[in-house]
Design a protein around this nucleic acid. Structure first.
Lengths: 199, 199
DNA sequence: ACTTTACAGATTCTATGGTTTTGTAAACCT
DNA sequence: AGGTTTACAAAACCATAGAATCTGTAAAGT
């Protein structure tokens, strides 16, 4: 199949774009630089990802999937549901703390029109703030799937959805605006989840 | 006392700034326009509020206090704690839905470098997103005070603080990224609060 | 207490080219 | 096929410079 090669090229392209964004901001990302860094021609970028906004969206989506992969792994690892949520939350927060791309996006919120730097860093920030609904939906779906494995959830479908939505929003809130350490926050959120799920 | 007049001038200035921001964005706000609209000289703006960033901060703070006043009113009105939270949440979400200033700030997230419009609308957005900690702290403090009136809260100080922090973050999340109607969201959050507070 | 007037420095606007980047398309290679 | 090179028009960006505006401070006036 060509799938392996195809995914590999696309993966390398997105990784290159993420690197450049983390180093110099999204405005500094050009199709040429992405292509060069990935060892590929510029047109391959267009063939693979289309336009630059599409590249940005794919890059953010890829990073989201990296986070969601951790969530899936942690939710599958633990036996206890609350422990699973706690572990997934802590891993997400730790991962967020040390994620250069995420920090580049968040940093773009502050210095918007600073000096000679370009101002268009903010094209991607809405994915985390005002247009976070796709992100919330994706995370919600992942948790919803993995939650079937646990027997001690006796909530109706609506209440179940509400609870999942809440934990996703809370984690996202702490990603953008950390309260204390990831471990402490994970403890707190796990306590809330415990109270909500089996009140 | 001069306090009445002083507060009135300051109030008129902040209201003028909020109007201009709602109409044309924060970048279109100049000290002269604010002064003129408030029927006051430009220097009075400087005497009263100092610099323009200070004006922006005061303007946001004033809007926050308008929201928190609603929270206080609703928390004081109801007898049942869960009903109080539900009512406060719904009022906040309804108020947020129809708040022009808030929408001006949120809209600035999208069109950053659009056409000929100035790009510096984003100076105020971080107050709601990446620098929301003061906002969270203020809201948390308000709720914390009003919560003493309700006897059926048997949480330790830490758990109590965690619960309040969570409800504040959840409401803020829904202000920026509404899920469904204010009433439905208020129902859902009230249910969560009920489960958490008296699990 | 507020206004008017004045002022230097910074920032923004306008307008101009020159440059880069985007996005599409073809021909070519292997 | 998957990929590259080359080419190209349109758009976006950059640099420069002068005009206009805005900021922030100060003083004198009412």
């Amino acid at each position: 199949m060509t799938t392996t090669t195809e995914a590999s090229v696309r993966e390398r392209l997105l990784a290159s774009a993420a690197d450049i964004t983390a180093e110099s901001g999204w405005a500094a990302v050009t199709m040429s630089k992405v292509a060069t860094r990935a060892g590929v021609s510029r047109q391959t970028v267009y063939n693979e990802l289309g336009t630059k906004p599409a590249l940005g969206q794919a890059m953010v989506l890829r990073e989201l999937e990296r986070f969601l992969a951790i969530v899936e792994r942690e939710l599958d690892a633990a036996d206890d549901l609350v422990t699973a949520i706690r572990s997934a939350t802590e891993h997400i927060l730790v991962m967020a703390e040390g994620n250069p791309l995420l920090h580049a996006l968040l940093a773009s919120a502050h210095s918007v029109s600073r000096g000679n730097e370009p101002a268009s860093n903010n094209e991607l920030l809405p994915f985390l703030t005002t247009d976070a609904q796709p992100l919330i939906a994706a995370a919600t779906a992942v948790i919803d799937e993995r939650l079937d494995r646990f027997p001690d959830v006796d909530l109706g479908p609506h209440q179940r959805a509400v609870a999942i939505d809440a934990i996703v929003r809370l984690v996202l809130s702490h990603v953008m605006q950390p309260g204390s350490s990831p471990a402490a926050t994970a403890d707190d959120l796990a306590w809330i989840v415990a109270r909500v799920l089996r009140g």
